[in-house]
Nucleic acid binder design. Sequence first.
DNA 1: ATGATATTCAACAATTTGGTTGAATGATCG
DNA 2: CGATCATTCAACCAAATTGTTGAATATCAT
Lengths: 122, 122
Amino acid sequence: MVELESPQLDSVFHALGDATRRRMLHALADGERTVGQLAEPFAISLAAASKHIKALEHAGLIRREVRGRTHLCRLAPGPLASAHAWLTFYERFWTGRLDVLEQLLREEDSRPPTIPPQGDER
Amino acid sequence: MVELESPQLDSVFHALGDATRRRMLHALADGERTVGQLAEPFAISLAAASKHIKALEHAGLIRREVRGRTHLCRLAPGPLASAHAWLTFYERFWTGRLDVLEQLLREEDSRPPTIPPQGDER
DNA sequence: ATGATATTCAACAATTTGGTTGAATGATCG
DNA sequence: CGATCATTCAACCAAATTGTTGAATATCAT
């Protein structure tokens, strides 16, 4: 089944629905960053940036490693894959490829709900 | 370039960040629906449902055909493709396929921002 | 210990969100 | 015409979001 009620999807999409947070993710795509580094490009207080980062963390999109007095952030793969899977599902309808639909519905029904490789590979 | 400041992405992701609206999209994936039909499964007022539908419409995720006194809604493909493209971009980082990264960056830089063709061969 | 640095916490204000209800609009039916 | 049906509008409310500032916490360097 496609997840409809998932609070995880709620928080993931909510996190993505803000340009500041998307830009932070973009920075993180280039490598790990401290909170201060993530905040630097924006004309907002450190506290505000901290909240954005918490939103990303809450959505599971990033994880944080506290290292002395600095917090290192890096991307986490899992939940984004869920969002991606969600969109992929609907995109098939939207691109009119209805031939694949029944097949898809059968697949989705007999597959674990959340994408399992929730890799905490550390 | 990956769109970072796009207000379109803002509204698309925001629209997707609510389970009620995702369920409405799910219903629409099965075919066109009137406002009343979209509202019916939910324990909310018609006015509240109308607002959700406006959010989806504002994000460009659905379009509406006024037909007499009823409004017919159906999915619209465009913006979802943008969101999907956005996620696809980042998913490559997240799945650790950094080998493809430079290639991708070059591609993304010389391509129209919103994915125009629907031809994602699978 | 002192002071500087990195980050969060707490309290507050403005705005947005998601819901309500009741009236308004507009199309259709008898 | 008058009633009914489908939907929106307007006013309102509670809660969440996003930002602020100033104090707190904890770590590092001297």
